[in-house]
């Protein structure tokens, strides 16, 4: 009489889904579950790490020297641009103080995290990183890469954190058009982002660059979010929609940057 067991199993499973859907039990129990899953994940990523280390080992001195040269060059360039940035930031702060506006400077605290898993799932677009609460991560923390915005931490436990990507359907952020300074709400759509409810006669063009606005109190200002690829106008609608291609290499990153954007206690600064 298997069908009785089947019905029982199905009812229990559906109950479990609804409990999880409603109360996010698993998200709350995640730190505990991580302790079980973490070792499996570590074992699973061992072959990849082995291949990586072997590859690095045999890359040869010439390639490394070349890379070193490039990095030195980049470092010089970066030092130059960071000096310029500092000067600008200083000036900005002075001007803002003069104008009695809130100071929202650049965050100085950042930490590199290694991506341990990329979940290209239809339901959730997330990556898992190897930094957790022991490094001072918090839910809602912005995650960037060298190109732009990756997402924010949706779940964090002792050893690892889950990063909700900007392309996830449950993710939305306030963006600013770099050309016109217009602001839009960008929703994730599973593959890229969508701007919804853009007024019909808004000056939005394909190829426009979108930056973070800094208004959502999650992401720092002026970071690349993506590029408008297509404007969708439907006759009879008051609003138009636009497709946006994410600027960051969401699923191709090996390392991402964690940024402490909020005012955080001193110990967070010393975490690493």
């Amino acid at each position: 009489m298997h069908w009785r067991k089947l019905t029982g199993s199905l009812i229990l499973a559906i109950a479990l889904i609804s409990v999880d859907y409603r109360y996010a039990v698993v998200d709350r129990a995640a730190p505990l579950l991580d302790l079980v899953i973490h070792p499996i994940m570590v074992v699973a990523s061992l072959p990849q790490q082995l291949i990586d280390s072997v590859y690095t080992h045999y890359q040869g001195i010439e390639a490394l020297a070349e890379e070193n040269r490039k990095l030195r060059q980049q470092l010089l360039e970066n030092v130059f641009s960071s000096r310029t940035l500092e000067a600008l930031e200083d000036e900005n702060r002075r001007l803002r103080t003069l104008a009695r506006l809130d100071i929202q400077g650049h965050s100085k605290q950042a930490l590199v995290a290694v991506v341990t898993k990329s979940n290209t799932n239809a339901f959730r677009q997330t990556i898992t990183i190897n930094r957790g609460t022991r490094n001072g991560t918090y839910v809602g923390q912005p995650v960037l890469d060298e190109r732009g915005v990756v997402g924010q931490i949706s779940n964090t436990s002792l050893f690892q954190s889950t990063v909700l990507l900007v392309t996830d359907v449950s993710h939305a952020l306030m963006v600013r058009n770099a050309r016109t300074n217009d602001r839009y709400l960008a929703h994730g759509n599973g593959q890229g982002l969508t701007l919804k409810f853009v007024p019909r006669h808004n000056d939005l063009k394909s190829g426009d660059i979108l930056l973070t606005s800094g208004l959502d109190e999650t992401y720092p200002e002026q970071h690349l979010v993506g590029k408008v690829t297509q404007i969708i106008t439907q006759p009879g609608r008051d609003f138009l929609e636009a497709d946006v291609q994410a600027g960051a290499q969401l699923h191709r990153n090996r390392e991402v940057l964690l940024v402490w954007n909020r005012e955080t206690p001193e110990e967070v600064a010393d975490a690493d």
Partner: peptide
């Protein structure tokens, strides 16, 4: 039997980061 469907389903859901139980339903079937 179904005990294994639950264990396997839980593992699949945790890996995929879904709501827990989604895989258990199809695995039970």
């Amino acid at each position: 039997g179904f005990g294994m469907a639950w264990v396997a389903g839980l593992a699949s859901d945790l890996i995929a980061g879904n709501w827990i139980g989604i895989h258990i339903v199809s695995y039970s079937i």
